[in-house]
Amino acid sequence: MTLSSLSPNAFSRALRQQPAQLAVGPFHVRLYATIASVQQHLAVHYGAFPVVGDDDFIDFDIALVRPLSLRRYYRAQVLFLFEGHTPFKPLPFAQAAAFFEWGLNWCIASHAHRYLMVHAAVVEWQGCGLLLAGAPGSGKSTLCAALVGRGWRLLSDELALVSLDDGLVTPVPRPISLKNQSLAVIRAFCPDAVIGPVVYDTSKGTVGHVRPPDASVIQAQVPVKIRHIVFPKYQAGAVTKLSTLSKGYGLLKLADNSFNYSILGVHGFNAAGDLCDGADCHAFRYSQLEEAVALFAGLCS
């Protein structure tokens, strides 16, 4: 059973009475979503996600609620609750849906240490896994959305989960978060992309999410071997250029972009090392999405 099997009315009524329980990749998430914008976010983006039964285990118990203070009404705010606690300061009420995505990132990044977690997008084409790692603003989400728009399978937009046992990447397909100009770029590049309501004036600027393709969500149980590790850099006017990086340098950059490399100690080092051993490492500079997509299609065919 998936979320979309409920009619929109039944859906919103159901969410007012009980939490949504969803399988988001390997994680079971319970979400109390009484706020309309969060319900709408679920309806737009999470329709194809499997529902978790009441007799199952819940990994992350999350609620987005209005505070019980003046800020419920005056310059309204929203709280993110994880197991009844607030790991973050409240945000403006309009950012509730984005807060859910950011909060869930935090839940995963601070608790799932059975993976080496890299701040990276992961996509796959015909069994060939491509890991796009880089700091915020490097253009990895834009690249990821463009590739997914052209039929690549989405495994993750923010968090690459590298298994410590076999080095494969476990999918956690979720809405792709786009910021500022990227929104217009992707709207033009893939007019079919479903982009949910856009939120303005967040700490990251203007933010919108692209709905993950149903096919990627359905294949969330199928892990992927990474063939190419790419550190992209968007640069206005740049000529498309892919250059090889040494595996050693690739490992250092992966460690740099990892959330839990230092916590995992030797296991993190081994996992990052094996990942680089089994893949080619590249630096990538681009400004034209069309050329970039063609280049990666060539790399993976």
Binding site: H111, R114, S262, I263, H267
Partner: peptide, 21 residues
């Protein structure tokens, strides 16, 4: 321990090891 809860315990034990160091 069933797999799912065990993953959380494993994860916490990894952090505890690092903390001990």
């Amino acid at each position: 321990v069933p797999t799912k809860p065990k993953q959380h315990l494993d994860s916490a034990l990894v952090c505890a090891d690092r903390f001990d160091l």
